[in-house]
């Protein structure tokens, strides 16, 4: 089974307190901590496990700048066999379709049975997998939390739906699946693992290499554009309890008693 996984380098929501820049139109990116999109680690783990059982190889690709190479290396330290960075100034400002079109161009250079993405990334849109599938004319299933290989042409997938119920589908290969967290337990990657792949060559492909017309991707080709970031004034929000921990606890217990919490 030849598997390709699309991954993304994102600001780590667990490690950052997000602030706007002084102009108020973008994040203050100076001290942001980045990591691999949470969902993508599950996708790569799943790909590695399938290949361990059924043979084949795992390729990871990402659209990004030079710094995105580190997430490819991390996924290769997990066990992905190849990595390709798709990078070009012309890709800046791409919307979901732009990203999907770039990924598609790389995917068409190879031959893959299974293409995986994370269910969503930092923007919370969950769009690239479904777009990619439609562009490739492959069948698609989102929020996949179970994959069962039936034979060379067919797999069974479980989709996680509302309430944690699972929708089972039979789907024909090649296909695109977006992977939901919890499908497996992604392996831990240590410093030693990263060191092992530190000098592996990661090819970089730009618009020219991919045969992409620069006007169709990037900001030029985007129908959907982010204008700014903002933090809305949502009224008062929570009553913030302040003071020493003892004082806070005293106030909290008072309120809990009043509300039936104690």
């Amino acid at each position: 089974m030849e598997i390709l996984v699309c991954v993304k380098r994102v600001p780590d929501t667990a490690e950052n307190e997000f602030e706007l820049n002084s102009a108020g139109n973008d994040l203050d990116r100076d001290d942001l901590v980045y990591s691999v999109n949470e969902w993508d680690n599950y996708a790569v783990e799943e790909a590695i496990q399938i290949v361990d059982n059924a043979g084949g190889s795992v390729t990871v690709i990402t659209v990004g700048d030079d710094e995105s190479e580190e997430v490819l290396r991390r996924e290769m330290a997990m066990g992905a066999n190849n990595g390709v960075l798709l990078s070009d100034d012309a890709f800046d400002g791409s919307d979901g379709k732009g990203i999907a079109a770039i990924l598609k161009a790389q995917i068409e250079k190879g031959k893959y049975d299974l293409i995986l993405t994370g269910a969503q990334a930092d923007e919370g849109a969950g769009q690239v997998g479904g777009m990619l599938a439609a562009m490739l004319d492959y069948p698609y299933a989102s929020l996949v939390n179970k994959i069962e290989i039936v034979d060379d042409t067919t797999i069974k997938v479980g989709r996680e739906i509302e309430g944690g119920n699972q929708e089972m589908n039979e789907i024909q290969l090649p296909c695109v699946l977006s992977i939901q967290t919890g499908i497996n337990e992604p392996r831990y990657v240590g410093i030693r693992g990263i060191r092992k792949v530190a000098s592996v060559d990661i090819p970089v492909n730009g618009a020219g290499d991919l045969g992409i017309d620069a006007a169709t991707v990037g900001a030029a080709g985007a129908k959907t554009k982010r204008v700014d970031y903002f933090v809305p004034d949502l009224g008062d929000g929570a009553e913030m309890l302040e003071g020493s921990t003892d004082e806070i606890i005293e106030k909290l217990i008072e309120r809990l008693k009043a509300k039936g919490g104690l």
Binding site: K97, A125, G126, G130, M131, A134, S142, L143, K223
Partner: peptide, 23 residues
């Protein structure tokens, strides 16, 4: 924007050649 919408909408936008905005 639920588990059905996430399954349907991105691909639909490609097939309709329409802009896409999520959630």
């Amino acid at each position: 924007h639920d588990t059905f919408g996430m399954d349907l909408a991105p691909g639909l936008s490609v097939k309709m050649d329409a802009a896409y905005a999520a959630d």
